[in-house]
């Protein structure tokens, strides 16, 4: 089917099988490699993207579902200059080790801060509850998000 969508700020018109998983469409057809696969069933959050501003796991969404929608990944946030403060905070706080879960974690962070610029500790934890990280124990990721909150408030 023909898909009309806005991906990372650019209008895209492509023909794609509607049953193709969104993660595969983004990686294979769009070359967006920040979207990582970890479980393929929506449990680990490594493939999280913004779908019309909300964080969703792209392995459980079919490409047909994004017709007429807006998709944002870290590449897109970078392009519009919204990634740099997050990058700076994640790096400074030591929130990144192997880095494989990181882009998904950043997308969940962005979804949270868009909706709630001043989240509590509890709200931060809940925002990333769907993003598994085996390296950090989440502590430093939560610190990185907290630092962003202070800056934005």
């Amino acid at each position: 089917m023909e898909i009309n969508a806005v991906i990372n700020g650019e209008k895209v018109k492509v023909t794609c099988h509607p049953n193709k998983r969104l993660i595969d469409f983004l990686r294979e057809d769009m070359g967006i490699i920040s979207v990582k696969e970890g479980c393929g069933e929506g449990e680990c959050g490594a493939c999280t993207v913004l779908l019309d501003g909300k964080a969703v796991t792209s392995c459980t969404i079919l490409t047909g579902q994004i017709d007429g929608c807006e998709i944002m990944t870290v590449e897109g946030l970078d392009k519009i200059g919204e990634l740099e403060p997050i990058t700076e905070s994640f790096v400074r706080n030591g929130a990144v080790q192997c880095g494989y879960c990181t882009p998904g974690m950043v997308i969940s962070t962005k979804a949270l801060l868009n909706a709630n610029p001043n989240p509590t500790e509890e709200e931060i934890k809940i925002a990333i509850e769907g993003n598994l990280c085996r390296c950090t124990g989440y502590n430093k990721i939560e610190n990185a998000i907290k630092d962003l909150k202070v800056k934005e408030s």
Binding site: I32, I33, S34, V35, K36, E37, T73, V74, E75, D78, L83, I86, T87, F90, V91, R92, G94, V96, G99, Y100, T102, P103, V106
Partner: peptide, 21 residues
């Protein structure tokens, strides 16, 4: 000292390539 890593910014930006990439 808390020297910052040089490889992590690109990991946040999704630019780092793993074998699957």
């Amino acid at each position: 000292k808390r020297v910052e890593r040089q490889d992590t910014a690109d990991k946040v930006r999704g630019k780092t390539k793993y074998v699957g990439d």
